[in-house]
Simulated assay, not measured.
Amino acid sequence: MDAKGDARHLTTAEVASRLEIKPETVYAYVSRGLLTKIPAAGRRGSLFREDEVARLAHGRRHGGERRGTMEDIVTAISRIEDDRLYYRGHNVEDLTQPIESVAGLLWTGDLDSPPEQFIAPAEILMTCRAAVGALAESVRLTDRMRVAVTVASASDQLRFDLSPQGVLRTARILLAVEVDCLGATRLDSGTLAQRLGPSLTNAPLPAGLLDSTLTLLADHGLAISTMAARVAASARVHPYGVVSAGLGALDSQYHGAASTVAYRFLDDAIADPLGAASERLRLGGGLPGFGHLIYRTTDPRAELLLTLLRSVPTAAPALTAIDAITDQLGAPQTAVPNIDLALAVLMHAYRMRPDAGEAIFAIARTIGWIAHTLEEYTEPPMRFRPNRTPVPAP
């Protein structure tokens, strides 16, 4: 856009004025794919397509009277900009601390305090383990987590303490219960990553690698499960209920279960990369684990995890298959591996059970849901209501 202006593009300030929102909200819309940010050649700042802004403005004008919608959420927890993910201003690629420390960053903004160990009270943990132990061995890990969270909620008389300190107490219990009720192996001490590994695989799994994976998955803006969690939190549902809402929305092939689909695709691709890709494309379903709705050139989470896995010898067959596929595919949006595929490589490299990626995702995202719960509790309650615009008679 030159000094005379360009009718097809608007500055950030102009977009904010047109939509009657704050400039920060403009970039929240970019993170959610509602607006396309265009670099401004020869000047600072960004430009935005006027037709996209006009569509958003039209939707806001004709949405009827409302108390609030998801478009009104502005979060300080995470930001996606220029194909990079930030947690409270920290590039996620620079966060090498244990996941407990990253949880502290997301929950309180404090990364420097020594991390607390996440442990559940013995009575709650014993009750949850008994309930989960009654399930068949074939029950998926995330289903075990759902049972454990429900039983922990019923066992915790302080679950309705919605003060910040009360939420943090509940959060530590939630994560401990989710991790410590998954498998027969019981470690009563250690970090979350150290206690989680034995439930996923019998192979030695470096806790630092699992910490990095959990960090990459902890939050990703207003994903569908996070939206479900925030709606529950807006009604002042206690954190156990909020996490239950998130777990319910996570249980989909398009979201939390996507790594399982990618894992099974990678099974075929390791044996015949191009044959597996060709068959998927022939069936019209796209390639599992490739492409992303938000990232344009690279998923930074996948980029980092795959880089870490290139030093793991047992990851070589899966990485070779991915390289063969990406070398042959020309469209960047199709050829770029996403975090679900990187999770699938991790699962193959360490001989994890096929649903391990879903469990890692759910535990990591629980941390993000708690952060959004704390943020939503500061907003007016029940602020999300469906529009009640009368429907014209035919």
Results as ranks from 00 to 15, higher is better:
Asp323Ala: 13
Ile325Asp: 08
Thr326Ile: 09
Asp327Gln: 15
Asp327Phe: 04
Asp327Asn: 15
Leu329Asn: 11
Leu329Glu: 11
Gly330Ile: 11
Ala331Cys: 08
Pro332Asn: 10
Ala335Leu: 12
Ala335Met: 12
Val336Asn: 11
Val336Pro: 00
Asn338Leu: 07
Ile339Val: 15
Asp340Glu: 15
Asp340Gly: 01
Leu341Pro: 10
Leu341Met: 15
Leu341His: 10
Ala342Pro: 04
Leu343Gln: 00
Leu343Trp: 01
Leu346His: 01
Met347Tyr: 00
Met347Thr: 09
Met347Phe: 01
Ala349Val: 05
Tyr350Val: 03
Tyr350Glu: 13
Arg351Ser: 13
Arg353Asp: 00
Pro354Glu: 06
Pro354Cys: 07
Asp355Gln: 09
Asp355Tyr: 09
Ala356Gln: 06
Glu358Thr: 15
Glu358Asn: 14
Glu358Phe: 14
Glu358Gln: 15
Ile360Pro: 00
Phe361Lys: 08
Phe361Leu: 10
Ile363Phe: 03
Ile363Arg: 02
Ile363Pro: 02
Ala364Arg: 04
Thr366His: 09
Thr366Pro: 01
Thr366Ala: 14
Thr366Glu: 07
Ile367Lys: 01
Ile367Leu: 03
Gly368Thr: 00
Ile370Pro: 00
Thr373Pro: 00
Thr373Arg: 03
Glu375Phe: 05
Glu376Ile: 08
Glu376Thr: 14
Tyr377Cys: 03
Tyr377Pro: 00
Tyr377Gly: 02
Tyr377Glu: 03
Thr378Trp: 02
Thr378Gln: 15
Glu379Tyr: 11
Pro380Gly: 05
Pro381Ser: 12
Pro381Arg: 12
Met382Asp: 15
Met382Gln: 10
Arg383Tyr: 03
Arg385Leu: 14
